[in-house]
Amino acid sequence: MNQVTRFWRSTIGRKIVMAVTGIIGIGFLLAHITGNLLAFKGPDAINSYSHFLHGPGAELLWAARVVLIVALILHVAAAYSLTQQSHAARPDGYTKRVPQASTLASRFMRWGGVLLLVFIVYHILHFTTGTFHPGGEYVEGDVYHNVVQAFHVWWVAVFYMVSMVFLGLHLYHGAWSSARTLSITGDSPHPLKHQLSVAIAVVVWLGFTLVPLGVLLGWIG
């Protein structure tokens, strides 16, 4: 059997794929946050960043988009097939089962993941293509305007902020478990400790929440 096929077919192989693509995602999110926070510096800062990406940086942007799309597809495909396999591994459930160690975040990875997928689709339609943009008109290239207008609609802001809670939870377990899957952490007497992933989850959650919250509270716009 071809080694790549064998690797993908094995549960560990697919977990590795999930971990690597997940870490790519985390990298992207951190960059994304940096961009977002420019909104606090006013329209010029964030719009010129956007113009850079769509002008001189376009090739970079597209390269990133391709990597992200491939990563997302692999991440979801691996998650889907592993989930199917897990369900098959226990066809008859317990009458009673009381989790002892697993975190809420870990148990919410699958549903949370589905929710985030829905969010991503909405988010692209919302800000990238402008197809669905409640509360006003989408202006191509004026990121600041679009953001401020969008988050003035309270339920859009709330939807974003709630989604970011799920993103934080997803990363809280995902960052930690990716590191373990890839075996890039040392052995530990307390292997269930999550410090680094708490930090990542909080940074990402807070970073993304600040903008809609800022608009809603009038700090931005």
Binding site: I12, S86, R90, P99, A101, S177, L192
Partner: peptide, 12 residues
Amino acid sequence: GFGNCSWFGECQ
């Protein structure tokens, strides 16, 4: 037919 490891930590 065992499932994969999702690092729930329940086994430990």
